[in-house]
Design a protein around this nucleic acid. Structure first.
Length: 580
RNA sequence: CGGGGCGUAGCGCAGGCUGGUUAGCGCACCUGCCUUGGGAGCAGGGGGUCGGAGGUUCAAGUCCUCUCGCCCCGACCA
């Protein structure tokens, strides 16, 4: 590790803060600032101090070992990338403002790399020619820059961050499947070794493209992502992707005559259903969206929300956003709040499958202050397309086994994709197969947010006093705490143990500062080193010191001449607990 | 991009409405004494372009205009 695996605090740079910085909202951000791990340079841009950087390096090293074990090869690609490359895949225009663009002195356009599909594909297309050279998996660990709309939560959603990204190149689908499985396995091992409680969930491929994808989620109530899981069969997906079973196959009511009702100034589902005395699920919301293929009207139950990801996938569109108020008026002939499928022309009607078979529902009348009651599918309106376009809700039946789904929150720390030939075709990256045919590489890409993983670990492992590092990613493994360095016996004992542990390769901090014991205890707890050895007056006279784990209340007395071996053994035990 | 809030010492803040000596407090920092098992005590001390620019005024941290930065919420589910 940088700077060696041992250090005395009198020579360290670890500016801890007693008070929590005003800017920090979530616990990992607060603790990283307080523990002297990071400092902010600008919005979403952080410097790593020695303690923080050691944690980053620990995570990186675990990632590196597991990637190498799968035969992936480490490379180092440029942060600054030319616009032409991004134009080849069309992402120069599509990527949006997250892509930080600038020009060099010669007015040539560049960007700071938010990801490296283009660069890595460019790299191999000039060098890999034959199927015999495949598969290849190239990875790197370094800085990414994404100009987030709103950076927040410290390292959790930073603009500049450290990422491990890997790209696999295979000759065919079968090869890709193998590469993907290897990465899935490597990721499981990596997060396990980092001491994290996590789960892999099915995910949508979104802007990166491709078809199959999993996200690795660290469980945390403060997480920004919603995990939908089945307690019975283990189905797990993120909210964007989560499917659910339709159990009700329709109503057995008789169709009643369509009835136009006056609903003055009632625009929301609550207002209309409250006024008409029906359940929100009996109202059909009609939402107008603008897509790159024109306008569409989405029909969903009043108690549901549109899942835009599912819609985009179903329609095969790239952009999807709610129509403006003006467009809604133009298309429906009524102000927002009164749209409905009956008599709505010029737009494609897309209905959620939940509505199929429902009888006598409420819909907007496309006329200000009017709705219809007893509208019926088939008789009064007929959707052009039916599909799953709403978000799952807790208690919806699992798509696989029908057991009620449970919702929880998580932090996305890893994401793997089967890309297929999307990039290789766009960039004309071909190889020759066994029969001499030119074929595009079948690609996969695999990311891990290294700095986010460190933050996620804190979200999952802390208490009121500070961080509680899993030993595998702790900045140091052991904290030596002489309570009073003015006493020779205490000082000498701690120095001797320091020497002993150093020789055994244990990563240690010796708190040799002339501070009062309380200050040292507070700092030790704050920075969260897992093993602590205390040298105090009472115990030193008995020839012992105290061994304590950060997450346990009590400590154990250990003879001074045995503490080195005890710490070494303890370290091995703790590391063993996070080995896959 | 829309809305709200905040920029005063390294950190956390007061002062501002109602302009008026040398701009304060706690923590941190330096020196000394003392103390040494959960962020001690006493004494002394250093540190500020009050985010920046312009303006009003005899006088601006305070009022006005502009600007920069940071934080939070929202970005339209009819």
């Amino acid at each position: 590790m940088g700077g060696g695996g041992f250090m005395r605090l009198t020579r360290y740079y670890m500016p801890t803060l007693r008070e929590k910085p005003a800017e920090a909202e979530i616990i990992s951000h607060q603790l990283m600032l307080r523990a002297g791990m990071i400092r902010k340079l600008a919005s979403g841009i952080y410097s790593f101090l020695p303690l923080g950087y050691r944690v980053v390096r620990k995570v990186e090293e675990i990632v590196r070992q597991e990637m190498d074990a799968k035969g992936a090869l480490e490379v180092f690609l440029p942060v600054v990338q030319p616009a032409e490359l991004w134009r080849e895949t069309g992402r120069w225009d599509r990527f949006g403002k997250e892509l930080l663009r600038f020009k060099d002195r010669g007015e040539r356009e560049f960007c700071l790399g938010p990801t490296h599909e283009e660069v890595v594909t460019d790299l191999v297309r000039n060098e890999l020619r034959s199927y015999r050279q495949l598969p290849v998996n190239l990875y790197q660990i370094h800085i990414k820059f994404r100009d987030e709309i709103r950076p927040r939560f410290g390292l959790m959603r930073a603009r500049e961050f450290i990422m491990k990204d890997a790209y696999s190149f295979d000759a065919d689908e079968e090869g890709l499947n193998k590469s993907y499985e290897d990465m899935y396995d490597a990721y499981s091992r990596i997060f396990h070794r980092c001491g994290l409680k996590f789960t892999a969930v099915e995910a949508d491929t979104g802007a990166i493209g491709g078809d199959v994808s999993h996200e690795f989620m660290v469980w945390a109530d403060t997480g920004e992502d919603v995990i939908v899981g089945c307690p019975q069969c283990g189905y797990a997906a993120n909210l964007e992707k989560a499917e659910f079973r339709v159990t009700e196959v329709g109503d057995h009511e008789k169709e009643k005559p369509l009835e136009k009702v006056h609903t003055p100034n009632m625009k929301t589902v609550e207002e209309v259903t409250g006024f008409l005395g029906v359940l929100p699920s009996r109202l059909v919301k009609t939402l107008l969206y603008h897509t790159d293929k024109g306008f569409v009207a989405l029909l969903i139950p009043g108690d549901r929300e549109v899942n835009e990801t599912k819609v985009a996938r179903l329609l095969g569109v790239e952009s999807l956003e709610l129509a403006s108020f003006a467009d809604v008026e133009e298309i429906t002939g009524a102000p927002v709040g009164f749209a409905g499928p009956i008599g709505l022309e010029g737009v494609e009607l897309v209905a959620d499958r939940l509505l199929e078979g429902m009888k006598n529902v409420v819909v907007g009348a496309n006329e200000e202050d009017y709705h219809y009651m007893n509208a019926n599918w088939g008789r009064d309106f007929l959707p052009h397309l039916v599909g799953d376009i709403v978000k799952a809700l807790p208690q919806d039946p699992c798509p696989r086994c029908g057991v009620p789904l449970e919702f929880s929150r998580g932090i996305e720390v890893g994401h793997i994709f089967k890309l297929g030939t999307k990039y290789s075709e766009a960039m004309e990256a071909y190889f020759l197969d066994a029969r001499g045919r030119e074929r595009p590489f079948v690609m996969g890409c695999y990311g891990i947010g290294v700095t986010r993983t460190a933050a996620a670990a804190i979200e999952q492992h802390h208490d009121d006093d500070g961080i509680i590092w899993p030993i595998s990613i702790a900045p140091y493994e052991c904290y030596l705490l002489p309570t009073n360095t003015t006493r020779q016996d205490i000082k000498e004992a701690s120095e001797k143990v320091y020497q002993g542990l150093m020789e055994k390769g244990v990563e240690i901090l010796l708190d040799d500062r002339e501070e009062r014991a309380g200050v040292k205890f507070k700092d030790a707890d704050l920075i969260g080193v897992p093993i602590r050895v205390t040298f105090g007056e009472r115990s030193i006279k008995k020839g012992v010191c105290e061994l304590k784990l950060r997450w346990e209340k009590g400590s154990m007395e250990v003879p001074l001449d045995r503490v080195v071996e005890e710490v070494v053994a303890l370290k091995e035990t703790l590391l063993g607990e996070v080995r896959p």
